[in-house]
Nucleic acid binder design. Structure first.
Length: 716
RNA sequence: GGGUGAUUAGCUCAGUGGUAGAGCGUCUCGUUUACACCGAGAAGGUCGUAGGUUCAAUCCCUACAUCACCCACCA
């Protein structure tokens, strides 16, 4: 005991983790009590964990460790995600560096290489999770491509297809030319650009457009029905000179046309503009259908003309020149500011294209009780519902509570405006769509139904599988798990994937099981650098959590990510902050060292002096406060209060004052008992936040593990 | 265009209807046998602006300003 080192040694952390893991207490099968479950958001298996993962894992671990100490049967189920498009993009960048491209490979070769890449990263990711101290149950570790998971994903697809909630639609979609796939609206963003606005003559009209190159795909002209200037033309067919000869276009009236914009006349190009596509949908009977003039590589698709094969940007230049030569351009406004839709990954302009994709109907009503999906669903709902309504209802009536509360409004707003979700992607890396075609026939099957059948070439949007994560992970480890642990208690994740993931999990969960997948959604913010800048590789301000751990220890990082971090708020992280908590870890170590060295002969039967009773009374108050905060998921304040108490009350005052009390025979015994009580209680309270240093201290004098000690309640 | 959040000490942020707190930083002092990854102490804020409600507002209400973010089919 006398030879406790004067500094806390972080390098022993991995030994402590091994001790816990081998104890079996990460596995709920070895625990009793009421279940408490968190499903870990599966980490993308394409790169080592970043500091955002560290934040999430820390918060989840705090919750789990606290609940375990409360005596619950805690399950924290870890997992990794194949992360379809994300991983494919990462891997293609790697190929590019090597001077290769997936288009020089067969799809099978590519898949095999990505598979190996992901297996390697999966391992690295899992080691990272361990280093952060995550007390999760590795025996239930799950990967999104595990065959049993894929089976459930297929099962859901089959079910939803059979009731018309999943359908194939040939409609306009967001096409990324670079990634060669369609994207959901959520996977695109808008950037402001200044482009020339061309005023082009169309027979008797002049109209404004930024995309003259799409004029070959025009199928109509549109004006606002209230626009008196053009009233007489509505329903008429006008003739105009085009670059490829004369054209005839019908003039239609549509509310979507803004009289104030340009000249109040719009060309309708349904094949290459979402708004125009919608106009066509409303006027299907009056005007011809979409006419495609741009292909999936972003090149003009006009065989037999001089424009064929030109990239869109080049085509725009040449078409403009030709229009000018033909005297068809009235004027050009060079400073037109507008928003352009781009790919969220590469920033390239989205090329809207029409092609068949699979969709999930979010607002379509279906008779819930008639699906034969399970007793829960049948008994609770027998009315007509849509996936959207189910989700909205669950959050509104508190079945699922969103933290922070303000994000509930954001959730509702998004749900109210939700559109059908494109669930298929042209990505090669992913779960293949289990659909086969032969002529007009369609069959849903994992394997080929026989000769002459070809499989749908697409894969699922990653969120289609991860959206089913809460029940899927619990179903693949035996029926008992699902019964015991579903619905789960908490889903802890970043607010940035509230729509991508959380909303979909809620809807999938309700559809498939009749119950919300989790009671509380705890949404953490974004970790930023010390100057509150977003971390990004290009800025070079990315904090590597494993590097920080090497330097300051896991506990220090965990505290830096916890103190002052309220749900939904972004968190600036600086080295100074982490260093501060490294110092705190050392403070814990040394205060413990003092107490342990001076209380070897303490006696639990000692009668406490009034002074020491008062100290323990205050400690009891602290326990009450901290417990209340923990139950409210307010870890920011719980950790801050503990920090303050341990350092400035326990170490600075109680321990300092104990030095004279220990020296006096009359108060020595009472002081010893008081000190050891305060220390051990503090270690327990601190354990969820700083598991390593607290367990290290505990191990100095105990044979059992701190990890399963009972959370302090009554001190006597 | 719609929406949300923020605006409190040099910095990062808590907080409460009754004239403000923490951490870090700064300054002064201290080589005390747990710890210098330390201790004792100090300085530092008209709580964004203008109104309103109230006996009383930093906290409630209304505008405004600035910043940040989210959503959205301006051709």
């Amino acid at each position: 005991m006398k030879d406790i080192p004067t500094h806390y040694d972080q390098s022993k952390e991995s030994e402590i983790y091994k001790l816990w893991e081998e104890s079996g207490y990460f596995n709920p099968d070895n625990l009793t009590g009421e279940p408490f479950t968190i499903i870990m958001p599966p980490l993308n298996a394409n790169a080592p964990p970043h500091v955002g993962h560290a934040l999430g894992l820390t918060l989840e671990d705090i919750m789990i460790r606290y609940q375990r100490m409360l005596g619950k049967k805690t399950l924290w189920l870890p997992g990794t995600d194949h992360a379809g498009l994300e991983t494919q993009v990462v891997f293609e960048k790697k190929l590019e560096k090597e001077g290769r491209s997936r288009f020089q490979m067969t799809r099978e070769e590519f898949y095999k290489e990505v598979w190996d890449f992901v297996q390697l990263n999966k391992h690295i990711t899992e080691e990272g999770i361990r280093r952060l101290g995550a007390s999760c149950d590795w025996s239930r570790n799950t990967f999104t491509l595990d065959p049993k998971i894929v089976e459930i994903v297929y099962d859901t697809f089959r079910q939803m297809h059979s009731v018309g909630l999943i359908y194939r639609g040939n409609r306009i979609c967001n096409w990324c030319v670079k990634h060669q796939t369609n994207l959901a609206d959520l996977e695109t963003k808008y950037i402001e650009r200044t482009d020339p606005l061309y005023y082009i003559k169309y027979g008797p009209f002049v109209l404004a457009t930024v995309r003259p190159e799409t004029k070959f795909g025009d199928t109509a002209l549109a004006v606002n029905p209230k626009d008196l200037r053009y009233k007489k033309y509505i329903g008429q067919e006008i003739e105009a000179m085009g670059l490829l000869g004369p054209i005839k276009l019908k003039v239609i009236a549509d509310e979507a046309v803004d009289q104030e914009f340009g000249t109040g006349v719009v060309k309708v190009t349904p094949a290459h503009d979402p708004a125009d596509y919608e106009i066509w949908m409303r006027h299907k009977d009056e005007i011809p259908g979409p006419k495609q003039v741009i292909d999936s590589r972003g090149k003009m698709d006009l065989p037999g003309t001089k424009y064929h094969g030109l990239k869109v940007a080049e085509a725009r230049k040449i078409v403009t020149e030709d229009l000018q030569k033909a005297g068809l351009i009235e004027k050009i406004d060079e400073n037109y500011k507008h928003n352009v839709q781009v790919c969220y990954k590469c920033g390239n302009i989205i090329e809207p294209l029409i092609m068949p994709q699979w969709y999930m109907a979010m607002t379509k009503k279906f008779r819930v009780g008639s699906l034969g999906l399970g007793d829960n669903l049948k008994s609770k709902n027998s009315n007509l519902q849509s996936l959207r309504d189910m989700g909205v209802e669950a959050v509104k009536n508190g079945g699922t509570k969103i933290m922070p509360e303000r994000l509930e409004k954001v959730f509702m707003h998004w749900m109210e405006n939700i559109r059908d979700w494109p669930i298929s992607r042209k990505t090669w890396w992913g779960i293949p769509i289990p659909v086969w075609y032969k002529g007009d026939e369609i069959k849903i099957s994992e394997t080929s139904p026989g000769d002459g059948w070809t499989q749908d070439p697409d894969t699922f949007d990653t969120w289609f599988s991860s959206g089913q994560w809460p029940y899927a992970t619990l179903m693949v480890h035996g029926e008992k798990d699902f019964e015991t642990f579903y619905p789960t208690q908490v889903m802890e994740t970043g607010w940035d994937i509230l729509f991508f993931w959380v909303a979909r999990m809620i809807m999938f969960g309700l559809y498939k099981t009749g119950e919300v997948p989790f009671e509380t959604v705890y949404l953490h913010g974004l970790v930023r650098d010390k100057d509150k800048q977003k971390m990004s590789k290009s800025k070079g301000n990315v904090v590597d959590p494993l590097g920080v751990i090497d330097q300051f220890g896991v506990d220090a990082l965990r505290m830096a990510l916890t103190v002052g971090n309220l749900p939904g708020n972004d968190l600036p992280l600086s080295e100074d902050k982490v260093r501060g908590y490294r110092n705190f870890a050392n403070k814990i170590w040394n205060a413990s060292r003092f107490v342990l060295q001076n209380t070897e002969d303490f006696d639990t039967k000692t009668k406490l002096t009034p002074d020491d009773q008062k100290i323990l009374g205050e400690l009891a108050e602290l326990v009450k406060d901290i417990t209340k905060l923990m139950d409210k998921y307010d870890f920011a304040h719980a950790s801050e209060n503990l920090y303050h108490y341990f350092w400035h009350t326990f170490a600075d005052k109680i321990i300092e004052e104990s030095k004279t009390k220990l020296a006096s025979p009359g108060t020595k015994k009472s002081t010893q008992l008081m000190l050891i009580t305060v220390l051990e209680t503090s270690l327990k309270l601190l354990h969820p936040f700083m598991p390593f240093v607290t367990e290290s201290v505990w191990q100095q004098t105990h044979k059992d593990l701190l990890i399963i000690q009972k959370w302090p309640k009554d001190l006597h």
